[in-house]
């Protein structure tokens, strides 16, 4: 999936490389904030797949607080204790689609914003 600003597959691979290098330590928490111009649920589902790849497992629990279907918010936990907040919000007229990701590791962090 492409966000119009970021090729998600390339992003996934690049951050995975940073993780595998050990520079940031074990990835513990991800905040994924994506501004989109289509169904936000699709983007959060795609984000969950990417983050699960970084954490190396499927989540053991997730919570969607609901609200307007113009946005999607998900909170998820993984078996080794990691967690993530994933949000897709309408870009609307105010902003172009973009992606802001923070991957916080045990001893460092990787950020992407485009």
């Amino acid at each position: 999936m492409t966000n119009n600003s970021t090729d998600i597959k390339l992003l996934s691979t690049t951050i995975a490389t940073a993780i595998e290098s050990g520079r940031i330590g074990r990835p513990m928490f991800v905040r994924w904030m994506e501004r989109v111009d289509a169904d936000p649920e699709l983007y959060v589902a795609a984000a969950l797949e990417v983050v699960s790849g970084w954490f190396g497992a499927e989540p053991v629990a997730s919570h969607r607080p609901g609200g307007s279907d113009l946005q999607a918010t998900m909170f998820a936990r993984w078996p080794d204790g990691q967690s993530a907040v994933l949000i897709a919000a309408p870009a609307g007229r105010a902003s172009a689609p973009d992606l802001d990701v923070a991957v916080i590791g045990a001893r460092g962090a990787a950020y992407h914003h485009a």
Binding site: L70, Q71, A89, P90, S95, G108, A109
Partner: peptide, 23 residues
């Protein structure tokens, strides 16, 4: 999150999401 985990004091932000867009 640790001194070396951000180029400044740390991630600080607020995102406002409305029916017509977000910032």
């Amino acid at each position: 999150i640790g001194f070396y985990s951000h180029p400044k004091a740390g991630p600080h932000s607020v995102t406002v999401v409305g029916t017509e867009g977000s910032r």
